Simulated scan of single mutants.
Amino acid sequence: MMAQYTEGECEELRYSPPPPYNTDFTRQRKHYTPDTEQDRIELRIRCPSVSSFRWCLKLYCLVFGGLGSILSFLWVIFHFYVLGETDSIDLQLQRYLDISLGLVMFCSTVSLIYGGYAESKTWLVIYITGSMSVLVLYWSWSAYTSYVQLEQPAYNEEVENLVMFLSFLYFVLLIPILIYYRALMRNSEASDRQPQHCCEESAGREDLAPKQEKV
C-alpha cells in the first residue's frame, strides 16, 4: 500500500532548517581553555601617595605651629623678666639676643600656622628660613662664647648638649613639613598642566575644523 498525503499534510512534513549558528558562542568555546592559571586571583598592593594623607600633614603643621607659637611667646616673656633682674652687661646682651631670636621664632611659627591653613608654599618657606636662621645664630653665638669669650659662663657644656639635642629634635620634626611642602608642589604642578592640556586639545580641534569644512 502506498501512503497518500494531501497537500496540507505535505506542507507540514517539509524539512525545516536548523536555527542560526551562534558564532559568538562558538568563538567563546574555541578560546576557552580549562587552564588553572585563568582562575587564579591577583592581589595588587599599591602604597598610598603623599597627597592621600595631605590633610594629616596639614593638621601636623597647625598643631606644631600652635605649640611653637606658645613656647616662643613664653620664652620671650621669661627672658624679659630675666633681663629686668640681670645687672651684668654681658648677660644683658645674651638676654637681648634670646629675646630677638624668640621673636623671630614666634613670627616663624605664626607663618607656619598660616601656611598650613592656607596651603601656601611661600609661608612654609618663610617658616623654614626663619627657624633655620635662629638655629644657626644660636650655634654661632655658642661657638663665639665657647672659644672667644672663655670667661663668660653663659654657655657651658650642659647648655651646648641641650642645644645639640634641640637641634636634632628640630630636624626630626621638620621632616613632615618638608613632605607637606613637596605635596603642595606636586599639586601646583598638576594644576598647571591641566590648563595647558586643555589648550592643546582646543587648538587641535580648531585645526581639525577647517579640514572638515574643506572636505
Results as ranks from 00 to 15, higher is better:
M1Y: 05
M2L: 14
M2R: 14
M2Q: 15
Q4C: 09
T6W: 04
T6C: 06
G8T: 13
G8I: 05
R14S: 14
S16Y: 13
T23G: 05
R27W: 11
R27V: 15
R29P: 00
H31Q: 14
T36L: 09
T36C: 08
D39E: 13
E42D: 14
E42A: 07
E42W: 10
R46G: 00
S51P: 01
S52E: 15
F53C: 03
R54S: 10
R54I: 01
W55M: 06
C56H: 13
C56V: 02
L57M: 05
K58F: 01
V63F: 11
V63R: 06
L67V: 09
S69F: 15
I70V: 15
I70D: 06
F73Y: 00
I77S: 04
H79I: 03
G84D: 07
S88Y: 01
S88W: 03
L93Q: 12
Q94V: 12
R95F: 02
R95I: 03
Y96D: 11
L97T: 12
D98H: 13
S100H: 10
L101Q: 10
L101M: 09
G102K: 02
L103H: 00
M105N: 03
F106M: 13
C107N: 06
S108V: 01
S108Y: 01
V110F: 06
I113F: 06
Y114G: 02
Y114Q: 00
G115K: 07
A118E: 07
A118Q: 03
E119P: 05
K121F: 10
K121Q: 03
T122D: 04
W123E: 04
L124R: 06
V125I: 10
Y127D: 03
Y127M: 04
T129L: 14
G130I: 01
S131Y: 05
M132P: 02
V134Q: 08
V136K: 05
L137V: 08
L137G: 07
S140Y: 12
S140W: 07
W141G: 11
Y144K: 01
Y147L: 13
Y147V: 02
V148A: 09
Q149S: 08
P153N: 03
P153R: 02
P153A: 02
A154W: 11
N156H: 05
E157H: 12
E157Y: 10
V159M: 11
V159I: 11
L166C: 05
S167Q: 00
S167G: 04
F171A: 02
F171K: 03
V172I: 02
V172G: 11
I175W: 00
P176M: 04
I177V: 14
I179P: 04
I179Q: 07
Y181A: 04
Y181N: 10
L184S: 05
E189K: 02
A190Y: 04
H197M: 15
C199S: 14
C199K: 15
E201H: 08
E201W: 06
A203Q: 05
G204H: 07
R205S: 12
R205W: 13
D207F: 12
L208A: 14
L208C: 08
L208K: 11
L208R: 05
A209N: 15
P210Q: 08
K211L: 15
E213L: 15
V215P: 01
